[in-house]
């Protein structure tokens, strides 16, 4: 951990630039977390105004992504950062893509919420959406928390939760398919809930990607495309 004090450069301006990038990324993380929560809320309560708001805030998420990427590119070009500084910039640049995609998924959920509000709601699927939604929100929150603390162990733990989400998603899918088979007239409305579940499951995947970037940032190890067990082994191994 003591290697990750991003201040302490001889150049105070470099310190400020790195700090600004981190702060902006955390701000974007907070904003995206709220987007997921609001989108889910709008779906569960049929709150069209809230769903509209999610769609509007989406632009701010996109702007932050562009702003942070621009800052990263500038520091890369002007400061030629190395080692942990370099890894932070690469990790941030990849994480903001994931955050932006999470923003997109939130917007999709909000769009579904609007549609469902117009159609008078779906006959089934809300319990599953609430359940998976809360799970995913906790996971995203923990991932961003691990990033803020540069905590690779926590990141691996959080990445492991993605598997549970996938299991919940498949279970929910089976029960909703059964429901639609029994009541074909509900298919179009239930499908809207299914798209929502799909979006939530994708948010879990993006949160896992963020966790992988935390491990890269802290340990310098690439843990993409491997199982959580292998990830654990790599993190516990010699740095």
């Amino acid at each position: 951990m003591d290697r990750f004090h991003f201040g302490k450069h001889s150049s105070s301006q470099f310190n400020e630039e790195m700090e600004s990038i981190r702060t902006n990324m955390m701000e974007m993380g907070g904003l995206v977390e709220k987007q997921v929560a609001d989108a889910l809320q709008s779906l569960l309560t049929g709150d069209s105004a809230l769903a509209e708001q999610v769609l509007q805030v989406e632009d701010r998420v996109d702007d932050l992504e562009k702003k942070i990427d621009e800052e990263c590119a500038r520091v890369l070009a002007l400061r030629a950062p190395a080692a942990s500084d370099l890894r932070l910039l690469i990790a941030v640049s990849k994480c903001v893509s994931d955050l932006e995609r999470i923003g997109d998924e939130s917007a999709k959920i909000a769009a579904m919420a609007l549609k469902l509000a117009e159609e008078g709601g779906a006959p089934s699927g809300y319990v599953e959406a609430r359940h998976i939604g809360n799970y995913v929100r906790r996971m995203l929150h923990s991932a961003l928390d691990a990033f803020a603390r540069f905590d690779a162990d926590k990141a691996v733990e959080v990445a492991g939760e993605d598997e549970q989400i996938d299991i919940e998603y498949r279970t929910a899918m089976r029960s909703l398919v059964t429901f639609m088979m029994e009541d074909p007239r509900s298919i179009s409305r239930v499908l809207n809930v299914i798209w929502t579940l799909r979006s939530l499951e994708r948010v879990g995947d993006h949160a896992r990607n963020i966790c992988e970037q935390i491990v890269y940032l802290v340990k310098g190890k690439d843990v993409r495309h491997i199982s959580v067990d292998e990830m654990e082994k790599k993190v516990r191994g010699k740095p």
Binding site: D2, R3, K8, H9, S10, S11, F14, P81, A82, A83, S84, D85, L86, R87, G220, P239
Partner: peptide, 19 residues
């Protein structure tokens, strides 16, 4: 050395955190 040095002194030097 330039992406993940083993020693913290190396890291401090190449990232400009010296002194």
């Amino acid at each position: 050395v330039f992406t993940q040095p083993d020693h913290h002194l190396t890291e401090a030097y190449i990232t400009g955190r010296f002194g």
